[in-house]
Design a protein around this nucleic acid. Structure first.
Length: 449
RNA sequence: GUGGGUAUAGCUCAGCUGGUAGAGCGCCGCCUUGUGGUGGCGGAUGUCGCGGGUUCGAGUCCCGUUACUCACCCCA
């Protein structure tokens, strides 16, 4: 018996897991559409130069190579699988800028690949659900509010199936950069990298690391720490920062944007968006707002939905296009939902009705009942073998199929009887009119337990 | 890429200081001759991850290897 091992980092769900994933995807895409985002897909590959162009990407890229490749192809540009949906989108916008209308809002749900070491909730192949808004020249600031609001709205809908609430932590690159410059620290990126570890290594080691790795004085290090410890859900975030006594034009612009963000979000989705000046992840390539999302009670999962603003997301040669976006790690979220049974599907198969077969000679009667149910949108399958009815019922029970239909025999009138195998209730029914309750029509996703 | 842990039935795991493999769940059959779930009785299943070594004898000890997994790095 050959043993097939799973490939680490390449998740594959069982049918019931896929029901959950499909539900999440449906909630996300329908929410995106409600806010006017257009659906888009891009190819799986980009030239490696293109993947490497945005920022000094340290992402592990999977390269694409033909098995029969010859040496003459060595000069051709190497293709790599995309590691997010933002870079391909930027390339797509540059390529189609003449045919698109702006501001352009799009959602994109696709697999992405990263050659990193897999772990719980971290994969090498996973699905992202991404939204972005881009515009040439200037991007109105309110889109920096809209993007996290859209995501928050989608998460709100997921609460119905038992997904815990989320917190979207936000910060602004200009605040950190302006502050650091204001106190005389030159290595902004290095400082951010250290600050990002605050919750992991603690304040003391952060102060030490800032001195050894960034060359900050102890006083500068302590100031950075004070900045990073600020959180707020309203305009008081600006007061707290200014109370530290640092003044810098970039800092003030960033604070202005940050206040607009938390106040704007609070008005639309109260209690979700929190300014947290310790959020540093991603700040090295974003230029304005940054977002990070944690599932409450599952902080160890890391951020399930992140993003931010780029000033020059796209450059088509004549214009630069600032953009802002966020990406949900669908696989990360779904893996946690399944692993901890936070949600469960009511069944793993679409089937609402199993039509029993009396014997193989009369299977056509069962097929006929099934056909008439399907014609009215009721997912129906016919029993695989004409086993004893007890076995056929068990077949349905094992699959959580709620109804079994017993067809009438040739000398009986009508279509037979349909039994709700949960209650045992069985009634005569007409395949042309009988309909299961709405909740039984298709698999549902419900809180687990 | 760096460091730790684990690897036994379909699943979860037990197997003490070496003596030729077990439980629970699940699965199959019967009790139940055409309507399941509970109950009773019975049954099948493993190259003990792979390779080598020590030994009369290795699931058990040693070495190697692969896979999985956790942490770091980084991130959805």
């Amino acid at each position: 018996m050959a043993r097939v091992a799973p490939l680490s980092g390449f998740p594959e769900w069982l049918p019931g897991g896929r029901v959950v994933e499909e539900h999440v995807l449906d909630v996300m895409t329908s929410t995106f559409q409600l806010y006017g985002y257009a659906g888009l897909q891009t190819r799986a590959v980009e030239p490696v130069e293109s993947l490497l162009s945005k920022g000094e990407t340290s992402k592990e890229i999977y390269l694409l190579r033909r098995l029969q490749a010859t040496d003459d192809e060595a000069g051709e540009s190497q293709l790599g699988l995309h590691f997010d949906l933002t870079v391909p989108f930027a390339r797509y916008v540059a390529e189609n800028s003449g045919k698109l209308t702006f501001p352009f809002k799009r959602y994109q749900v696709q697999q992405v690949w990263r050659g990193e070491r897999p772990q719980d909730g971290r994969f090498r192949e996973f699905t992202q659900a991404d939204i972005d808004v881009v515009a040439p020249g200037e991007l109105p600031a309110h889109y920096e509010v809209e993007v996290p609001v859209v995501m928050a709205a989608a998460f709100e809908r997921l609460r119905e199936i038992g997904v815990p609430p989320v917190r979207i932590s936000v910060n602004n690159r200009r605040v950190a950069q302006g502050f650091y410059e204001g106190i005389g620290i030159a290595d902004v990126d290095g400082t951010l990298r250290v600050i990002d570890k605050l919750d992991k290594i603690g304040p003391d080691r952060v102060v030490t690391a800032l001195q050894t790795e960034v060359g900050a004085t102890e006083q500068q290090a302590r100031a950075c720490l004070e900045l990073a410890s600020i959180t707020a859900t309203d305009a008081s975030v600006a007061d707290q920062v200014l109370a530290l006594g640092v003044r810098n034009p970039l800092l003030e612009q960033g604070l202005h944007e940050l206040v607009a963000l938390v106040e704007g979000a609070a008005a639309q989705v109260p209690g979700v968006v929190v300014a947290d000046l310790a959020i540093a992840r991603g700040l090295d390539y974003y230029t304005g707002s940054v977002y990070e999302t944690t599932l409450l009670g599952h902080e160890n999962l890391g951020s399930i939905c992140s993003g931010g603003r780029y000033d020059s997301l796209v450059d088509d040669g004549t214009h630069t296009y600032p953009g802002v976006g966020m990406s949900l790690g669908v696989s990360r979220l779904v893996s946690r939902l399944l692993r901890e049974s936070i949600v469960r599907p009511t069944r793993a198969v679409p089937t609402a009705v199993l039509v029993a077969v009396v014997d193989e000679d009369t299977r056509v009667r069962s097929d006929d009942v099934a056909r008439r149910l399907r014609a009215r949108g009721i997912a129906t399958e016919v029993a695989p073998v004409a086993a004893k009815f007890g076995k056929q019922i068990r077949h349905a029970d094992r699959r959580d199929i709620p109804f079994v239909w017993f067809p009438s025999t040739a000398d009986e009138p009508g279509d037979g009887e349909v039994k709700d195998i949960r209650s045992g209730e069985q009634v005569a029914a007409d395949a042309g009119t009988w309909t299961p309750p709405e909740a039984d029509l298709r698999p549902q996703v419900v809180p687990g337990g």
